[in-house]
Write a protein that binds this DNA or RNA. Structure first.
Length: 268
DNA sequence: AACTGTTGCAACCGCCGATGG
DNA sequence: ACCATCGGCGGTTGCAACAGT
C-alpha cells in the first residue's frame, strides 16, 4: 500500500502548536467532538494532519489531564506497573487517571530509570519485592517474568512443585500506595481445564465477585477471572504469571497454595 | 557574559491491528 | 480474501530551558 504523503508534503504545518491553534482545536471538539480525526483539521480550519490533532488533544488539551509533577505515589505506581506490564505505556496510563501515556513514558525515561539505577548503586538497592537491576534488564528484554525474584524483603521463594500445575514462586511487593503479589507458575494456563476456572468463579468470596472481569484472552477467555488491576501474561511456552492486586491477594494466595507444600502466607 | 553540555518534554515517525467495503 | 483507511501505540527526535564552566 502506498503511504499517504506526510504533513509537510501536503502543505500542512508541523512542530509546536500555537495557542491560537490550541483554541481552534478545543472549540471545535467542544462543539462537534472528534469522530473523525482525519477530517477534523480540515473542518476546523487547521493546517495540521489529523494525527497531529489527535496527539495534541490526547496529550495536552484534554480537559481531564492532570498537569504538574508526578507525586512519589504516582512514580511508585508507575514502577510497579512497569514491572508488571513492561513498556505498555497506554496500559499503565489507563491506571493513572489524568496522566497520558506520553507523559508516563517521558517520566520513566527521564526520572524513574535514573532513580532505579541510583537505588541499584546504593546499599538500599532492593526496592521492596523488586530488584531494580531487573527493571533495567527488563527494558532490554521485555517481559520475561520468569526471572526469579527471590532475594527481596517480602519475597518468599518456593521450590517448584513436582506437579506442573502448582505454584513455583510467590512474591509480594509493596510501596506507599500499592501492594501486589506476583505468582510465578510453571503452569501452562492454556491447558487448565474448565473445572479450574469454574471453581475459581464459584469460590466463596463475595468481595472477589465484584472484582471479576472476564477478559478476552486466547487462553481461557470464558473462564479467566482477573481483577481490574491484575494482568495475566503468558510469557512463553511453559509458563505464565499472574499478578494480583491488594484487593484480592488473600483470595489468590489461598487459591494457588491450597495444594500445600508452600510457606505460610506472607504478611500483607 | 559567553559558551558548552545536559535535561526534560512536546511532537513526530513508523508500524500494527481493527474495521469496513 | 484482499485492500484501503483509520486510530492507537511505542520508539525516537528536536529543541528550549537550564546548569556548569
Amino acid at each position: 500500500m502506498v503511504r499517504a504523503p506526510c504533513c509537510e508534503k501536503m502543505g500542512l504545518k508541523k512542530g509546536p502548536w500555537t495557542p491560537e491553534e490550541d483554541q481552534i482545536l478545543i472549540n471545535y471538539i467542544k462543539l462537534y467532538g472528534h469522530g473523525n480525526w482525519r477530517a477534523l483539521p480540515k473542518q476546523a480550519g487547521l493546517l495540521r494532519c489529523g494525527k497531529s490533532c489527535r496527539l495534541r488533544w490526547t496529550n495536552y488539551l484534554r480537559p481531564d489531564i492532570k498537569r504538574g509533577n508526578f507525586t512519589r505515589e504516582e512514580e511508585d505506581t508507575i514502577i510497579n506497573l512497569h514491572e508488571m506490564l513492561g513498556n505498555r505505556w497506554s496500559a499503565i496510563a489507563a491506571r493513572l487517571p489524568g496522566r497520558t501515556d506520553n507523559e508516563i513514558k517521558n517520566v520513566w525515561h527521564t526520572h524513574l530509570k535514573k532513580r532505579l539505577k541510583q537505588n541499584h548503586g546504593s546499599n538500599d538497592n532492593k526496592r521492596q519485592g523488586i530488584d531494580s537491576s531487573q527493571d533495567i534488564k527488563k527494558e532490554q528484554e521485555p517481559v520475561n517474568f520468569l526471572s526469579p525474584v527471590t532475594d527481596s524483603p517480602g519475597c518468599r521463594p518456593v521450590s517448584p512443585p513436582e506437579s506442573s500445575s502448582e505454584v513455583s514462586t510467590v512474591t509480594t511487593s509493596e510501596n506507599n500506595s500499592n501492594m501486589c503479589m506476583k505468582i510465578e507458575t510453571h503452569q501452562d494456563f492454556s491447558e487448565i481445564d474448565e473445572n479450574f476456572w469454574s471453581e475459581v468463579l464459584s469460590a466463596d468470596n463475595s468481595s472477589m465477585a465484584s472484582d471479576f472481569q472476564v477478559v478476552g484472552s486466547d487462553l481461557q477467555p470464558q473462564y479467566l477471572p482477573i481483577s481490574p488491576l491484575a494482568t495475566f501474561e503468558p510469557v512463553n511456552d511453559y509458563g505464565s504469571n499472574l499478578y494480583v492486586s491488594d484487593t484480592n491477594m488473600d483470595f489468590w494466595y489461598n487459591l494457588f497454595t491450597r495444594a500445600g507444600d508452600l510457606p505460610e502466607q506472607p504478611e500483607i
